[in-house]
Design a protein around this nucleic acid. Sequence first.
RNA 1: GCCGAAGUGGCGGAAUUGGUAGACGCGCUGGAUUCAAAAUCCAGUGAUGGCAACAUCGUGCGGGUUCGAUUCCCGCCUUCGGUACCA
Length: 971
Amino acid sequence: MQYHPEKIEKKWQEYWKKNETYKVSNQSDLPKYYVLDMFPYPSGAGLHVGHPLGYIASDIYARFKRQCGYNVLHPMGYDAFGLPAEQYAIQTGVHPEVSTAKNIEGFRRQMDNIGFSYDWSREVNTSDPNYYKWTQWIFIQLFHHYYDLSADKARPIDDLSAHFDQYGAADLNAVSSQDYSFSAEEWQAYSQKQKADILMDFRLAYRKTGYVNWCEALGTVLANDEVKDGVSERGGYPVVQKAMKQWSLRTTAYAERLLGDLDKVDWSDSLKIMQQNWIGKSEGARVVFDIDGHQDQIEVFTTRPDTIYGATFIVLAPEHDLVERATTVEQQEEVDQYISFAAGRTERERMTEVKKVSGAFTGGYALHPLTGQKLPIWIAEYVLKDYGTGAIMAVPAGDTRDRAFAEKFDLTITEIIDRTAFPNAGIEDKVGTMINSHDLDGLSVTDAIQKAITMLEENGRGERRVNYKLRDANFSRQRYWGEPFPVYYDKDDVAYTLDGEELPLELPNLEDFKPNVEGKAPLSKLEEWVHYKNQYTREVDTMPGFAGSSWYFLRYMDPHNDQRFADDEALNYWRDVDLYIGGAEHAVGHLLYSRTWHKFLFDLGLVPTEEPFKKLINQGMIQGVSEKIYMLKGKQKEIKWTLDGEQKEIFFPVPSYVFLSSEIIGQFDQDDLTEQYVIVEYLQNYGSPDKAYLNEGGISKFLVWRPEFKSALFLNQYGYWYNGAFSVDDHEKQRIYTRSEVEKMSKSKYNVINPDHVIADYGADCFRLYEMFLGPIEQSKPWDMNGIDGVSKFLKRLWSLFYGDNEQWVVSDQPPTSADIKVLHTAIKKVREDIERFSFNTCVSAFMICVNDLKKSDCHAGQVLEPLIILLAPFAPHIAEELWQALGHKESITTAHYPDYNTEYLIDDSVQYPLCINGKKRALIELSTDMDQKAIEEAALAYEGLDKWLDGKSVRRVIVVKGKMINLVVK
RNA sequence: GCCGAAGUGGCGGAAUUGGUAGACGCGCUGGAUUCAAAAUCCAGUGAUGGCAACAUCGUGCGGGUUCGAUUCCCGCCUUCGGUACCA
């Protein structure tokens, strides 16, 4: 029997489906294990070879754990709300629901083709009302809770109202948008609207003014992704930052716990550091500056209160509320101009372009809190509205950007730290002795920080404060394809949430997905829908992409429950995700949002764990190799080139496009050249950089795809292709070479490799093994097919251990040799250990070594081959099932216990020791394994070739690492 | 800019705790088999010099620690991911 992957793979995929092999129950005596993949956004480009990298790894691990006796939850679903479907709808009129359903179907077919062990009965889809009912429900809970810092958890907002009723804002330790002080009597006297506004400042889901990328020309709000170099990517129109009332989630309330609980999870240090830095905890002081001639105060946060006497001016973000107040009549025009300049700058530009210094003087002055000195108030884009308080005290002697700013605008620079004792220290380093700082003079920086805070507190001009870089998450999108907010407003703009029985609030149907006037969300066009119970209006914005993905891992535990987001029993059984695999691009965003939601649900007693993901692995990205063909710009009337030193020319009857093979572009002026993408599947030799080419067939396909080039000429170093034929006969000379470039794998770059095509050529098992064989799971690499033949050969060799070279069943009952047993147990040990450390590429190597060795010794013993295919089953499940069945088993190999190794079989009699002189390997000596340190040392010194290396010098020291190496230190 | 990661033969990569650099695979070269090809099998394959034995160099670059560094430390360079509305 021959190895035909296409036959056996379909057969087993159908078997697994029919027998519900991978269906998992919430009731089991076995220990649980939850293996999760980051679910995909079902894009129109389909699944490409980059997606399955992580999915294959997690599938191997899930299958391995199952065979080790765990009840394994391994589900999959779709993150189905998102921008691309909406853009597609705007372009084509196809409803996002329709295109999404179609894409999901395609993804599912592609995933089935790879042979994953998902329990598809638990599939979730974030755009399914039965799912987003609970996303809305969680939002409602967030709305009705606030964060109590004393209890260090979320508490019902009604408790807060009760506190206000009884005590006013006194003795309150809660997270809020601004500080409040009012008495119980005052509170009781407030109007409903006033009360609602105050409570809003405490809610965990709350409204505030946020900024969006507004493109007037397109009449829409753009995602950051759609803005390039400050203008819209489509059309290149200006983009400005526009203020809009938006929903936010008070993620900052959880900052401290998000930071501290990183200790509880088994994630890589680099990932934890990224999250730490994102949360960005810093300790310092809040300092208050009076504005000269006004009642208002400017509040700043500084990590360097020691430098307070070096503060020589104040900088506000251009959007800061007090800019208007501080600006004088004379400066009004300049300030207005600067504000509109800053509005045209994206936040990214403002952060990145640190070398461009710009700003404007408001004309106003602040008073130094300790000296009373007048400090000019400036506005500048380097101060961001959402960072800290949106204002800074500028200390040009202690901060590089402040210094650059002071130098540019000729502002006072007061040196306040003497660093002569630290000649290598930069101006931001916390070393040195204070000078020009009144009471702080002579103190070290660290002492000065403490004393400065005390002084500020005593003067009532500030206090010790912890600040986080983490910002509250903007939760509103002016778009259609997302979860509708279960929210409505009364005439006074007071927000209310829908009752539970009204959920899900289904996304109403729409024909036209373009935004409404002034960038209002598309739902605002449905006037009837917007009006709710006569006097109310509904929220028309929708939730962002991360809403549905922030809790989906919980829904898999109990996906069909219509009473709760998941049942207690299911939650208490599965608890948390034991292994989570996904792209490094989610390192902060998704993982931080999920952790926040999870902690909130924990506070409400709804989930049993504080952290959702115990162990996390980031898979690397598979990049694509795009291929571009050179072309002369515009249509040509004639073409001249040199062939074998001879000048050639062609005059075209009608002007034609001319494409050039890459080896001859040197003959042309580079300025006349341009490039066109080629669909990589049209190319021969694709995968070898700069060696891919179009042959006659490829050119035909290219011209069918791009009919505008139908009459083009393709030129290479031997001749040309024109009107359907090459001018040379030799096939070797009929090649138009393209240029290769490593880029993101994307539909728009025509470099997407569909796993289906690889599977059609090599089989799913081969594809799975090859993706793992490419390299460490965490590393990014461009996709290339150059090594896949090796994996394919391996599977055929494995098959031939069972079916022999003449395709007859050759497995025997003969007991195996001890050498073959050693080969098997070496592989078991290596594979078991490497799976546990997620080193799947070396597992594949271990399989290859094992099969090569068994092939060499002509081993066909069932006692060796049977454990071997169980060992391989998680990696190549189809071939494993087939051979398992051929060995006479009736049950799926999924139920077979994963083999254990016995170290007794692995012991060697002797060790090859490298004999090193001063760390350099000079000889190999073979010594018995049981020799002790001393005996090894003696054997080394007795080595006959030794004199040659000593060169008259003597051995000073002998270092022996038993079983590893011997080093002689010679002087 | 800031935060994180990576860089080893012609290529993908291995070296798990500081201990034989290049496992395994691709490619390439030579050979066997074949009418021929494919497939398969065998041998070789880091660079330089040498007939060879062997020697020297060699893990992005420049330093350092150590008997010994791909691995640890300091300073750079390049590429990739994120940078709060792509997912």
